[in-house]
Design a protein around this nucleic acid. Structure first.
Length: 414
RNA sequence: GCGACUGUAGCUCAGUUGGUUAGAGCGCUGGUUUGUGGUACCGGAGGCCGUGGGUUCGAUCCCCAUCAGUCGCCCCA
């Protein structure tokens, strides 16, 4: 009665085949790069107390307002599927007392959940790779995480498709006075604002800065600029970030309108976006001075970034080839034990292989084509009797009869 | 949260101005070939036309809702 086909939950996809391998290779590249820079792995739970995100991300952010998977568990505790990675890592730093021993450098990867409308480059369950650097809060740390990002994108061979934008949004005090000014400025120009920005005015005025609406962009020309509100120390730190990036040959543009959506950010912010599509952020991050404190861990500064695995995947042209070096074809069930032993020998030589139990040569060869097997080994009556194999190369079509010793020699040469 | 388009066979898609048995290509399967694939030819299976409701004598088609996909906005990785 209820036997219609079941589907996935909206915005949550199955990953298999080429896509699976592509994602795995992205994560492998990530681990390779960040391990060389001595970031260490950390896994945090996918579910956290809702508080972890409520206290850090900011009440006004869209993530908190409408995108969190929050529910009561069976003890009536409010828990949330993590919408991002930083808050969990920061929580772990505090929970485990690692704040006593700085600096600490961590990387992570795994699924994140946001209840949004799915569209290009956006899913409700998606994977992120990311890293965090907790230390004294110097420009060196900013550059260190940007350096890691730069190497990562080169490793993936997509550095050529993206550009780096950086900015600073100052520390809390400077930012507060800046926000006060732009709020006043936009209020006095209220009638000229776009309807979207009108809504942002009270909730999150910083966001008006990176608005794409032409009427807003026109207003920005005469708007106050963050740099006029920075203290000397903040200005110098940003200068140092820029000169160090130049030293590292990491090209960037300074975008005074680059702001971050989450409340915990301060000082340096950065974003790698597609050169041909400014809105497509591939990797983004920044510094956060208040996050640890919000979670009760004291005044510790951190800087980090996250990148969307599926977004990166969409930029990779070629996935790894899925192939099968050897397919073992017994023509009769009575040879199975023998074939299993051969399969094990191949396994211990690190040769990927599969046994097919069709016991029908024609079907088996058709299957071999489909799975792109390079070589098939046929074991039938004649072969079994004489302890030999018919070794057929499916690409060339040639077939030879070999004994076990010759078989392994031949395979080594392939 | 707002908006646009789409949903017919395993896949890609035709189609019906509302009318009896809903089509193609690819794929699958059987045979020509009882141990030799990728080619060719001949057969076959496979569809509550996304789901629920409404209008109608009659709905896959029209209307409403809902679910899913794709794409914009908002926002973000």
């Amino acid at each position: 009665m209820n036997n219609r086909k079941i589907s996935t939950v909206r915005g949550m996809h199955d990953t298999y085949g080429t896509s699976f391998y592509k994602q795995r290779s992205i994560i492998e590249s990530f681990i390779k790069v960040v391990s060389l820079l001595n970031f260490t792995p950390m896994n945090t739970p996918i579910i956290e107390h809702s508080e972890v995100f409520l206290r850090t991300l900011g009440d006004s952010s869209d993530v908190v307002m409408k995108e969190m998977y929050t529910f009561l568990d069976k003890s009536n505790d409010s828990v949330t599927l993590r919408p991002e990675g930083t808050a969990g890592i920061a929580r772990a730093l505090i929970s485990n007392g690692f704040t006593q021993n700085l600096p600490q450098k961590y990387f992570y990867y795994g699924p994140m959940f946001r209840y949004e409308r799915p569209q290009q480059g956006r899913l409700r369950q998606f994977n992120q790779v990311g890293l965090e650097f907790f230390g004294k809060g110097s420009y060196f740390e900013d550059c260190e995480v940007i350096r890691a990002a730069h190497h990562f994108l080169i490793e993936l061979d997509i550095k050529k498709d993206v550009k780096l934008k950086i900015n600073t949004i100052g520390k809390t005090d400077s930012r507060k006075s800046f926000i006060k000014e732009i709020k006043a400025y936009f209020y006095s120009n209220k009638k000229k604002l776009s309807s979207d920005s009108l809504k942002r005015l009270d909730r999150n005025p910083l966001r008006i800065l990176d608005s794409k609406a032409p009427e807003d962009i026109a207003l920005l020309e005469k708007a106050p600029v963050i740099y006029d509100f920075l203290k000397t120390e903040e200005v110098n730190s940003f200068k140092n970030v820029k000169s160090t990036l130049k030293e590292l040959d990491i090209s960037f543009t300074v975008d005074p309108y680059l702001v971050r959506g989450l409340d915990y950010y301060s000082d340096t912010t950065f974003e790698f976006t597609l050169t041909k599509n400014d809105r497509f952020a591939v990797l983004a991050g920044g510094r956060y001075d208040n996050l640890i404190n919000e979670l009760g861990g004291g005044k510790i500064s951190g800087v980090g970034w996250a990148a969307g695995v599926e977004r990166l995947e969409s930029l990779l042209l070629k996935g790894p080839l899925i192939n099968l070096p050897i397919l073992l074809i017994p023509t009769n069930e009575k040879y199975m034990n023998y074939v299993l032993r051969i399969s094990n020998k191949l396994y211990f030589q690190n040769v990927k292989n599969q046994i097919l139990d069709h016991f029908n040569l024609k079907k088996s060869l058709k299957y071999a084509n489909k799975v792109k097997a390079k070589i098939v080994l046929i074991i039938g009556d004649e072969e079994f009797k004489s302890s030999k194999f018919s070794l057929k190369n499916l690409e060339s079509g040639t077939q030879v009869t070999v004994n076990e010793k010759e078989l392994f020699e031949k395979i080594k040469n392939e």
